[in-house]
Design a protein around this nucleic acid. Structure first.
Lengths: 293, 293
DNA sequence: GTCGAGCGTAAGCTCAACTTATGCTCGACC
DNA sequence: GGTCGAGCATAAGTTGAGCTTACGCTCGAC
């Protein structure tokens, strides 16, 4: 019988590309991962990996098996969720990941509703950039997460992650009246590697230029303070612009950001997950979203 | 992560009813099965089993988990089948189970076609009563099997087994012109515990009487010889009555027997299974089925 | 050419999972 | 009602799978 633990390693390899990265993700040594994958290959009776230069890559058979690994692990997730449901209502620890703005704006009312409805539930929040969420979910470090996606930045398809939309908000530009008008300005973006950073770059590219990025700041309040100090322009989502400092003009753009709840595929029927997603939904009307675009 | 091996044990328990029977089926000691199921219960966090008198039975949560075990094991089966397909064409050992008449009539041409088309395939045939087939398939003792089902004898629903119909044949009654006319005769049936035995009993019950079963004989040629010797009446399928001995009158009844191929659910795409089922189909036209009822 | 990143193998250790041995409880049977 | 066997659970011992550390090899960057 195929071992789901080994299938999990193979799936991680297909996403991360190197055995060392898989080992780091599952907190094993690379040697252990290498041995497990060798054993899987032996049981499979086909080559699944092949050395390509300094790393390994999957063979055609390896990719086929990864697809089946998704299905197997999803069914195991469903079984675990069913057991959690059989244990009774939502209780125990629930690891929640959230991007900073959501942690600040959405989580407080959501957590109040959640623990009010389910006193046995122990939510544990970690701030995390949406780009890192699916890995953290797959690794079991998180159970649910609040993520966002932007126009221009297509979310990577991930067969192991399921999402549920929560709300949309408009994007605003500081100082200028349009992205094109800020062609020659200094730009303030989030740190490279984050979705927000990618979004700014893409929006400018769509307007026909490469932004002159001068500052990398994650906290939108700081971003607005920089803008107020004349240090550059920036794109900020509605929720980050509830109290702009004096002198910062905000122009609403035909550009949206969508916030979603994400969890491991198959885990959607887990009582704690359901409760959390429900709580997120109930908290949305409390947000200062003066538009529904 | 839930262990599929333990889920398999739980599933076997749900069918067999006692830990001792499960242990015998998987060739473990009852102690090992008991320990594994205890571990599963611990990981699940819910009671799955409860002592009822001298045996154990499943709790509601246990039954829920068994349903998920079916899904998980089916996906693992699919993954294995995909690997077999990736290994190339059908090859290696293929364990085939068949009831005696099928082994005599259908298998010779089917095996010729099978090994002719796939020289690497090594078919291994075991005669087995259809009543025991699903257990043998689940235990991995067989890969495919030829089974039959009768009117009046509903096949037990088994979520882990998949079947594909091959052909139908009519049933014949020896000596008498109708079952009702044989109410006071001595009856010859197969051994108790077989489907054929159950079929005879049910057919008589449907005609309004309990048969006076005097002889238990599995081989239909012997059955016909007994009938020719005036030792009783019997129901025989068309394929078992190709050359009745002189003096045995056969009356075709409005009663059918269906022959099917059975295999583990999810294993239908295994190249060897596909090849075998195809070979079965190609052999059907060679059978002396002078009717298609 | 040198060096580090990445992979694989060898050797050792630890724990899970099996066995055997034993005790307990329930139900059948005289 | 006592006896006995079937069935399950626990204790103790053994084995092997799966991890670690240690080390060697190869490839690609600088």
């Amino acid at each position: 019988m195929l071992d789901p633990r080994k299938l999990h390693l193979l799936r991680e390899l297909s996403r991360r590309g190197t055995i060392a990265a898989v080992a780091e993700a599952v907190t094993f040594t690379p040697s252990a991962v290498s041995q497990q994958l060798s054993a899987l290959e032996r049981e499979a009776g086909v080559r699944l990996l092949e050395r390509t230069g300094r790393t390994v890559s999957l063979t055609a058979a390896g990719h086929v098996l990864v697809e089946h690994a998704h299905a197997v692990l999803e069914q195991l997730e469903r079984a675990s969720a069913a057991l959690a449901a059989a244990r009774g209502g939502p209780c125990g620890p629930l690891r929640i990941g959230a991007f900073p703005t959501a942690a600040r704006v959405l989580l407080p009312p959501a957590l109040t509703a959640l623990t009010g409805a389910h006193p046995g539930l122990v939510p544990m929040v970690s701030e995390i950039d949406p780009a890192d969420v699916s890995a953290a979910l797959r690794a079991g470090e998180l159970d649910v997460a609040l993520v966002h996606e932007y126009d221009f930045v297509p979310p990577p398809a991930d067969a192991s992650i399921e999402t549920e939309p929560l709300f949309r908000e408009a994007m605003y530009l500081t100082v200028r009246a349009s992205v094109a008008a800020a062609r020659d300005d200094a730009w303030i973006t989030n740190k490279p590697g984050t979705l927000c950073h990618a979004m700014t770059i893409r929006a400018c590219q769509a307007a026909g230029f490469e932004p002159d990025v001068r500052h990398h700041v994650d906290d939108f309040d700081t971003v607005l303070a920089f803008a107020a100090a004349g240090q550059g322009v920036a794109l900020v989502p509605r929720l980050a612009a509830t109290a702009p400092p004096p002198g910062v003009r905000l122009t609403r753009l035909p550009l949206a950001r969508r916030t979603l709840a994400a969890f491991r595929r198959g885990n959607g029927d887990h009582p704690a997950i359901r409760a959390a997603v429900t709580a997120f939904h109930t908290a949305v009307p409390h947000l200062p979203l003066d538009d529904s675009a």
